[in-house]
Simulated assay, not measured.
Amino acid sequence: MAEEAEGSLKRLLVPFLLPEKCYDRFFIDLDLLDFPCLKILISKGLGLGIVAGSLLVKLPQVFKILGVKSAEGLSLQAFLLELVALTGTITYSVANSFPFSSWGEALFLMLQTITICFLILHYRGHTMRGVALLGIYVLILLVLLSPLMPKTVVTLLQATNRPAVIIGRLLQVITNYRNGHTGHLSAVTVFLLFAGSLARIFTSIQETGDPLMAVTFIVSSICNGLIAFQLLYYWNVSIPHKWEKKHQ
């Protein structure tokens, strides 16, 4: 019975959270302070936690837009650039066969981000443009994920992540500054994105060893931190009653 339980535990943990050598170190040798294996366990745990959390991280933003039936204060250009960055992460990670725990949240964030882009267009009276955006994006993503796509193109797209993230976040920062408030930005989403990007710095270094991925998340953390600061700064500022078309 004990052997069956041990076998079940091993199948559960290896290789999702631990390589076999670390499982043996923890559960057979009972060396619970093995630093290299602890780093792997923390990284894997954080990665899977971020992927799981990414299923919900932007839903508060989606629900807030739907609830108020407005995208006041949200920069469409910022979300589109974020979509470019997420797409680069997805395609680069798939092309390099990185573990899903190191990039899976980008997939779920991409789905939520394209939904927000559609809602922004919809509530600004451009529903058909939103539908066209969805169709065009799906086609582009399928092409980028195709085995026929040259790896140099995918690497170049990943290299554009940093400027895309910086420009996108700065556009939202500028929008907030000009408006004097953060509009209908969701505080839950903003702070979860900030925390997630900070954790991703560690997991990307630990799991991929790719400096390009690590730098992308460092830049993303700084930019997300700026927006989080603005959200706190403008916390008690009320949103003026302005019609959405003023921001078209």
Rank of each mutant, 00 (worst) to 15 (best):
F194A: 12
H241R: 11
S101Q: 03
G130Y: 06
F79E: 05
E105F: 09
G104T: 12
V190L: 06
F16C: 08
L55V: 02
T152D: 07
P150G: 01
V57T: 07
G209T: 07
L46S: 04
T115G: 02
K58E: 10
G125L: 01
Q112L: 03
L111D: 00
S221R: 08
V153L: 04
P15K: 05
R124W: 05
T182Y: 08
L139R: 08
R11A: 08
P15A: 14
N96L: 12
L17W: 07
L13Y: 12
R11Q: 06
N176K: 09
V68M: 07
I114L: 13
L144V: 03
G180T: 13
S221Y: 11
I65T: 10
P211K: 10
P163V: 07
K64F: 00
W103Y: 15
K44W: 00
S146W: 02
I239S: 02
L198D: 02
K245D: 15
W235Q: 08
G225F: 03
C117F: 04
F191I: 10
F16E: 08
S93M: 01
V165G: 00
L41V: 14
N236L: 08
W243S: 01
I227K: 02
G180Y: 15
L231W: 02
F229D: 07
L134N: 12
T152E: 14
T175R: 12
F100R: 00
D34I: 07
T91S: 15
A71W: 08
P150N: 02
